[in-house]
Computed example of a mutant assay.
Amino acid sequence: MTAPTLAEAGIVQFGTSRFLLGHVAAFVHASREAGHTRDGILVVQTSPREAGKQKARDLNTHRQYPLAIRGRRDGRDIDTRETVTSIAGCWIADEQWDALERHIVEHARFMVSNTGDSGYRVDDDSALAAVPTSFPGKLTKLLYARYRAGREGLTVLPCELVSRNGEQLLALVRELAQRDYADADFDTWLTTRCLWANTLVDRIVSTALEPVGAVAEPYALWAIEDQPGLELPCRHPDVQRVTSLAPYEMRKLHILNLAHTYLVHLWQREPQSQIRFVREAMDDPAWATELRQVLDDEVLPSLAEHLERPSLEAYRDTTLERFANPYLDHALQDIAQHHATKCQRRLQPVVESARRRGIATPRLDDAISSAQSTTHSR
């Protein structure tokens, strides 16, 4: 299928990350190829960084880009390459604001975002600025323009790794709108005419291709919490409408993320080891066995207080398969950033649940204690 025109770009995507190129844009491409979706994507670059602006210019020039899918899924080795054709263009908010505002008013139906760890910071930003500095500020100003034009509301699908991300983003936008516009009808329009979805995303997009493109693992998930009136921007097996995100968040945080953090514990425990990547850890029989044991003996029995055991075991198997991906250079040194904090968030709740159920957690206890000792010794 040929690339969409700007008039067909009903999806406005805030963020140019390789993750979005290998996740949302790939799903929309597949849905368009299957004839399920007509909407294309207008990508918006939002940060002031010159490197980010150059990336946006490259994407606007090379709107069709390669996506390599490499790894293992459901026991099958996968090494494929396809050309993603869902991008209609890429604009720089600081340079093309007026055109962006017109597009939001005239063509947008969905808004998607993945604006990084600081994406929801507002600081002293104002929606009344010519171009607001923060993502919530930009979003508020753009939605106000659409509201003033008498148009219908939009569906907002944030992909930031923030719990209840749709609800949190709406709260920020309402706060800005009430302060800067003081328009009760606009507030009503935001809450009753726009739809703010909570979502969870999961896919490792490991490498960028130059000038534009990405390498991604076969596994992918875009879980979108259902609500009345929800329309999805595309149809794809990995885009799932779910009743609640809670079980998905719990499995990801306390199995996949916990397992990453436990491998860092093993890596720090053996400073002379030559292991650098997650896949190398999974190739080492001793490390792989210990990880499997901590999951089977301590983690899954604890999580069974909240989730059914078969779903936990299936996710464990998927996680270990993903970790063993021979094409993925996922560095333990990178995962080790903020290790003590990650232990508290990923491991400690599992330990507390285990205590309530009388389950011993010697390995998790040791990992938490070691992280605390390392922090205190600095």
Rank of each mutant, 00 (worst) to 15 (best):
residue 2 T to Y: 08
residue 6 L to Q: 00
residue 7 A to M: 11
residue 8 E to N: 05
residue 10 G to E: 13
residue 11 I to R: 03
residue 14 F to H: 08
residue 20 L to S: 03
residue 22 G to E: 08
residue 23 H to Y: 07
residue 24 V to G: 01
residue 28 V to P: 09
residue 37 T to W: 11
residue 38 R to P: 06
residue 39 D to R: 09
residue 40 G to Y: 10
residue 43 V to H: 08
residue 52 G to C: 06
residue 53 K to A: 09
residue 56 A to M: 11
residue 63 R to P: 06
residue 67 L to H: 07
residue 68 A to R: 13
residue 71 G to R: 00
residue 71 G to K: 00
residue 72 R to V: 15
residue 73 R to V: 06
residue 74 D to Y: 06
residue 79 D to A: 01
residue 83 T to F: 08
residue 83 T to G: 01
residue 98 D to S: 15
residue 98 D to T: 12
residue 99 A to V: 05
residue 101 E to P: 01
residue 101 E to G: 04
residue 103 H to M: 11
residue 105 V to Y: 02
residue 107 H to R: 14
residue 111 M to I: 15
residue 112 V to Y: 04
residue 113 S to K: 05
residue 115 T to C: 05
residue 116 G to M: 02
residue 120 Y to C: 00
residue 123 D to P: 00
residue 125 D to V: 10
residue 131 V to L: 02
residue 132 P to V: 04
residue 132 P to I: 06
residue 135 F to D: 03
residue 140 T to Q: 08
residue 144 Y to P: 08
residue 145 A to E: 09
residue 146 R to M: 05
residue 147 Y to K: 08
residue 149 A to F: 07
residue 152 E to V: 10
residue 155 T to I: 13
residue 165 N to Y: 06
residue 169 L to R: 10
residue 169 L to W: 04
residue 170 L to F: 06
residue 174 R to I: 09
residue 175 E to Y: 07
residue 187 D to E: 10
residue 187 D to Y: 03
residue 188 T to P: 02
residue 190 L to Q: 07
residue 193 R to W: 07
residue 195 L to Q: 05
residue 195 L to W: 04
residue 197 A to E: 06
residue 197 A to I: 05
residue 197 A to S: 10
residue 206 S to W: 07
residue 211 P to A: 05
residue 212 V to L: 06
residue 213 G to D: 04
residue 213 G to P: 00
residue 216 A to H: 07
residue 219 Y to V: 03
residue 226 D to A: 13
residue 227 Q to V: 03
residue 233 P to D: 00
residue 235 R to C: 11
residue 238 D to T: 13
residue 240 Q to I: 05
residue 244 S to D: 15
residue 245 L to E: 11
residue 248 Y to E: 05
residue 249 E to C: 11
residue 249 E to P: 11
residue 253 L to F: 06
residue 255 I to C: 06
residue 258 L to P: 10
residue 261 T to P: 11
residue 262 Y to G: 03
residue 267 W to F: 14
residue 267 W to Y: 15
residue 269 R to D: 08
residue 270 E to Q: 15
residue 271 P to A: 10
residue 273 S to T: 15
residue 276 R to P: 02
residue 279 R to N: 12
residue 280 E to Y: 06
residue 280 E to D: 12
residue 284 D to Q: 15
residue 285 P to S: 09
residue 291 L to K: 12
residue 292 R to K: 12
residue 293 Q to T: 15
residue 295 L to Q: 04
residue 302 S to W: 03
residue 302 S to A: 15
residue 306 H to R: 14
residue 308 E to W: 03
residue 308 E to K: 01
residue 316 R to C: 02
residue 319 T to K: 08
residue 320 L to M: 13
residue 321 E to H: 01
residue 329 D to V: 02
residue 332 L to K: 02
residue 336 A to P: 00
residue 337 Q to N: 13
residue 337 Q to L: 14
residue 338 H to R: 15
residue 339 H to V: 10
residue 341 T to A: 12
residue 344 Q to W: 00
residue 344 Q to F: 03
residue 348 Q to D: 12
residue 351 V to C: 14
residue 352 E to A: 11
residue 357 R to A: 15
residue 360 A to I: 04
residue 361 T to P: 08
residue 362 P to D: 04
residue 363 R to T: 09
residue 364 L to G: 02
residue 370 S to W: 00
residue 377 S to F: 04
